[in-house]
Design a protein around this nucleic acid. Structure first.
Lengths: 354, 354
DNA sequence: GTACGGAAGAAAAACGTTTTTGTGTAGCTG
DNA sequence: CAGCTACACAAAAACGTTTTTCTTCCGTAC
């Protein structure tokens, strides 16, 4: 029996094999297994037993061909595409999201396909056959989004597409509100002036945070101090901007959107004698290993990745099922209050680590 | 034209549409596009032009059904499965590998599918239709490997499968050699005794490193001091083992396989007054954000991820093409010499960071 | 003038499902 | 007992390719 079973489990047990063994037609097998049609419970049960005993699994491609559903979705990281590397140091939000999305899709019996930049080079063979896409951080006039749109492939995005105000299937943080939380926290902690360091990717995150920063400055009558560093420059870019900021005069606080920039800026300034949080408060808009491990640890806005993944997958499934578009989903970012923005302790205390 | 093209690019332009428009049979279209059959160059060119003008892309599932090649491979992280989370803090080797593998597969016009644990729960729909698998860090008697074996699906593993000495399609570091490099480095830096902290997953990495450690101790006449911490316990587990090691008497050096354990152990011991590298050298067998960011930075063995991904994908493609099995691929781990194992500096120097 | 052979392409089979349509039997109604 | 319905299942069509086999045409050799 084991011998025989092993042979049957070899690739290639089709619906015909099951039908023959169960003494029914392939229709009956299909219906039994999918809970459709009009089959007596007895037959259904028997067929199920035979199928599972034979280790039958419906061929995904045949099924997909017929029902034009692939049961898999694609995940494309636009920000990684522009970063030029798919494994940047310390930026773990991507893997976390990929992992969480994979777990989430598995719950719905969907596969998750990792698709590098769709817009250049030849298309990966069945990128166009996937049932839907999650596009992470599309940028302005994103060609990947345009392609999906043209093909009529359902998709959702993390962060809105800045060039498509009418598109509603997105999930994101409320960046304006989060920015405000940060700025008010910094102000409450005693910062008189706050410098802002954004990235150069033309995505909603950069746009919205900067707009919120400017608006807040207007409201509170402060002079905006805005710096931009390319995302791909990472910690090094942060160090350079740290030096620039110092040259322009030490502000009360620095708000860097990316964790790597924040870490680099803080490090450069600390090396030049600035004490954090004594002389300067530092906060970042996206938590990363760098912000966590910096001495002192840097306060950060944090994404609840599993929640984000769940919301994205859920919304995508709704879109794929043709449900009417509800409003975009806005998640609240958590603010992680760490040492780098602790208001005015004495200078000695801050040295003792921990 | 633009209007019309846009409509045609809508989903659903089939080989029939192309054939009709070009005034030939579907056979001719298929042959023209795939460079097969006996078609005059003129026709071939004309068909190609029509097809690309219409934005025709062969349906991946129909093609896959016919040729029983899916043009996609699966990637499954066994160590993440056992870790219980797909986004562990600071463990970025996975995303890096996923990203590098995705880039590598794209070069070969293959898709990359992320597949969570295959061995429990219902199978993701077409996990069994994929052309091949990369299994990262299979453990002893790994059910995922068994399943693939049973189904006759080609696969390669990162690290050998400890339960299948005959299986040769794997890529790994030479763990024995690497361990030796570390131990000799620690000894050369002045460590008289070296404690070893391994994980509890039953994979080749844990087995081979520990065996190499024991062998080295025998050779050099040292008493082995072995500790085990579950991988999933992370930094916290490291802290606990740090305390245990201290209780057993301070060794000259500690070699922790995982970066998170190393960081935790170092931290716990530093908090109890141990100076690194003054009183104790610390080294880890796998670089991670934790080892990089620790103060002082912890020396580590590092994987050349792109090389690993390239080797894995390459080997998998060979296996899928039925090439005879050459020897397993052994990559050399780089040893990253950092502050935590710098031999006997004065105690004051080591405080000034950097 | 017929047979042969190669070139260029068309027709048809096959891949393994799902879904639509058919078919036969049993039970009930009028 | 003809006719209708419900039931349980089977047959066949369809999905969009690739591949195998078949046709047609034409030039050349016998």
């Amino acid at each position: 029996m084991g011998e025989r079973m092993a042979r049957e489990l070899q690739e290639g047990v089709t619906i015909w094999d099951v039908a023959r063994k169960a003494g029914v037609s392939i229709t009956t097998v299909s219906h039994s297994l999918n809970g459709k049609g009009n089959i007596s419970e007895a037959t259904r049960e028997r067929v199920r037993a035979v199928a599972s005993e034979m280790g039958y699994v419906a061929d995904a491609m045949a099924r997909g061909l017929r029902s034009s559903r692939m049961n898999a979705i694609g995940l494309v990281f636009r920000s990684l595409d522009s970063l030029g590397t798919y494994g940047p140091n310390g930026v773990d939000v991507f893997m976390k999201l990929a992992g969480a999305a994979a777990a989430e899709t598995l719950n719905r019996n969907l596969g998750l396909m990792l698709v590098p930049d769709l817009s250049r080079g030849p298309l990966p063979p069945f990128s166009m056959s996937l049932d839907g896409y999650i596009v992470f951080a599309p940028h302005l006039d994103d060609p990947v989004v345009a392609l999906l749109e043209k093909r009529g492939i359902p998709y959702v995005t993390w962060d809105r597409d800045p060039g498509r105000p009418d598109f509603r299937n997105w999930v994101a943080h409320d960046d304006a509100a989060s920015t405000r939380v940060v700025l008010e926290h910094l102000a409450a902690a005693g910062a008189k002036s706050i410098a802002y360091v954004g990235g150069t990717d033309r995505n909603a995150w950069n746009f919205d945070c900067e707009a919120a920063y400017v608006a807040w400055c207007m409201e509170t009558g402060k002079e905006p101090r805005i710096y931009h560093v390319p995302e791909r420059d990472g910690v090094e870019g942060g160090q350079q901007v740290g030096v620039r900021i110092l040259g322009d005069g030490l502000p009360g606080a620095v708000f860097c959107l990316t964790g790597r920039h924040a870490s680099g800026a803080a490090q450069a300034m600390q090396e030049r004698g600035v004490r954090i949080p004594g002389d300067l408060l530092v906060c970042t808009g996206s938590d990363s290993e760098h912000s966590r491990q910096h001495k002192p640890p840097i306060s950060a806005l944090d994404v609840d990745i599993p929640a984000a993944a769940a919301a994205l997958v859920q919304r995508l499934c709704e879109v794929m099922e043709g449900k009417p578009e509800p409003d975009p989903v806005l998640l609240a970012a958590r603010f992680l209050h760490r040492k780098s923005t602790s208001p005015g302790k004495t200078r000695n205390q801050q040295r003792s680590g921990r």
